[in-house]
C-alpha cells in the first residue's frame, strides 16, 4: 500500500504537461493512430494485417454490476500496449475477457467480441489452446507450491513435453528471459515460495514465458516489487517486445510512459481514449479526464 503510493509520488511527471486549454486545441488536430484514423488506405491495410488482438464493443457484467461497457480497440503485434486507469475501472476484467477466464467465474458475463489473430475467441473450441498462446502475470506473484524448476516447467509439461533435456532448455531460457536465471540457477529445486517477492514475480514472468506466448498480459505486476526490480522487469519487457505483443495494465502512469507505444485510459468501465503514449503525455488528449488523470488531478 505505502509502496504503491510512494512509487506514485516518485513518478510526478518529469516534463510538465502542457496547459489543458492548449491540449484541447491540439487534440482536434492530433492524429491518433487507431486503425480508423490512419490516413492512407495502404497503411491502414498494413496496420490491420498486424493487429494481434481486436476488441469490438466488449462489455463485461458481474451480475448486475457493469465492469466494462462497450470497449473497442486494436492492439498491434509487437507493441507494448498500456492500460491505465483508477481502481475498479475494469482493467483486470478486460484482461480476463481476452484469455477467456470468464469461463471460470460463474457470475461474469461477457458480450461483444475479442478477435485473436482475427479469429473470435469465442469460436475457439479449445480454450486451453487459446490460453497457452497468452501469458498472464498477476498483480501479486502466484508461486505455485512447487520448486522453481517445476513452476517454470509446468506449462511445457501440460503440453505433454516430457524429455528432460528439452524441459531443462525451456526452463533455462525462460528464466534467462525473465532476468532471474543467475539468481536461481544453483537452487532450481528449492521451493518457489522461498524466493523474495521481486524474484517470485520474475518467476511468474518466466512461467508465463515458458509457453512461448504470442501475447503477454501483465496486470499491475509491480505492486509488490521494489523500484529496482521494477526497472529490471521493464528492461525485460522492452526486450520481449521483439518477440511478442505485450498488454500492460499499470497504475503507474510513468510506467506506461516509459514502456508503451500506445496507452488506453479506462475509467469506470469505459475506455475514455486510446492514443500514442507520447502524444497523451504531451497533452494531446481528446478528453479532459485523461489529462486530469495523467497529471494526478483525480478523485
Amino acid at each position: 500500500m505505502s509502496n504503491q503510493s510512494t512509487a506514485h509520488h516518485n513518478e510526478e511527471p518529469k516534463s510538465p504537461l502542457s496547459h489543458s486549454s492548449a491540449a484541447v486545441v491540439l487534440s482536434t488536430t492530433s492524429t491518433i493512430s487507431t486503425a480508423d484514423a490512419l490516413p492512407a488506405s495502404a497503411e491502414r491495410e498494413e496496420a490491420q494485417a498486424t493487429v494481434k488482438v481486436a476488441v469490438r464493443d466488449l462489455s463485461i457484467h458481474y451480475g448486475t454490476t457493469t465492469a466494462l461497457s462497450g470497449v473497442s480497440l486494436d492492439i498491434a503485434a509487437n507493441e507494448i500496449f498500456a492500460i491505465i486507469g483508477p481502481a475498479n475501472s475494469g482493467k483486470s476484467s478486460f484482461l480476463q475477457a481476452i484469455n477467456r477466464m470468464d469461463l471460470l467465474r460463474h457470475n461474469m458475463s461477457v458480450s461483444g467480441s475479442v478477435l485473436f489473430n482475427g479469429i473470435d475467441t469465442r469460436s475457439w473450441r479449445n480454450v486451453y489452446a487459446l490460453r497457452r498462446k497468452i501469458g498472464v502475470v498477476f498483480p501479486l506473484p502466484v508461486g505455485l507450491p512447487l520448486s522453481i524448476y517445476d513452476n517454470v516447467a509446468l506449462a511445457p509439461r501440460l503440453r505433454g513435453i516430457k524429455k528432460p533435456s528439452l524441459l531443462d532448455e525451456i526452463v533455462e531460457r525462460s528464466l534467462r528471459r525473465a532476468a532471474l536465471w543467475d539468481e536461481v540457477k544453483d537452487r532450481l529445486q528449492a521451493l518457489g515460495s522461498l524466493l523474495s517477492g521481486g524474484q517470485q514475480q520474475r518467476l511468474t514472468i518466466a512461467r508465463a514465458l515458458s509457453q512461448d506466448p504470442e501475447v503477454l498480459m501483465l496486470d499491475e505486476f509491480s505492486i509488490a516489487v521494489d523500484p529496482v526490480t521494477t526497472m529490471r522487469i521493464e528492461d525485460v519487457l522492452k526486450e520481449l517486445k521483439q518477440q511478442m505483443t505485450i498488454i500492460l495494465v499499470t497504475n503507474l502512469v510513468q510506467q506506461a510512459n516509459r514502456l508503451a507505444e500506445r496507452t488506453a485510459f479506462f475509467l469506470n468501465g469505459e475506455c475514455v481514449e486510446v492514443g500514442e503514449t507520447e502524444a497523451l503525455f504531451e497533452g494531446q488528449v481528446q478528453d479532459q479526464r485523461t489529462l486530469d488523470y495523467l497529471q494526478g488531478r483525480f478523485g
Partner: peptide, 25 residues
C-alpha cells in the same frame, strides 16, 4: 483459488489443474 487461476491461465485443463496443482498442494 489463485493457484487454480494461475494454472488455468497457463492453459491447463480443469483436470490438469486438479492433478498437477490442487492435489499436490
Amino acid at each position: 483459488d489463485t493457484y487454480r487461476e494461475a494454472a488455468e491461465a497457463l492453459g491447463a485443463s480443469k483436470w490438469q489443474v486438479v492433478y498437477k496443482v490442487v492435489l499436490p498442494a
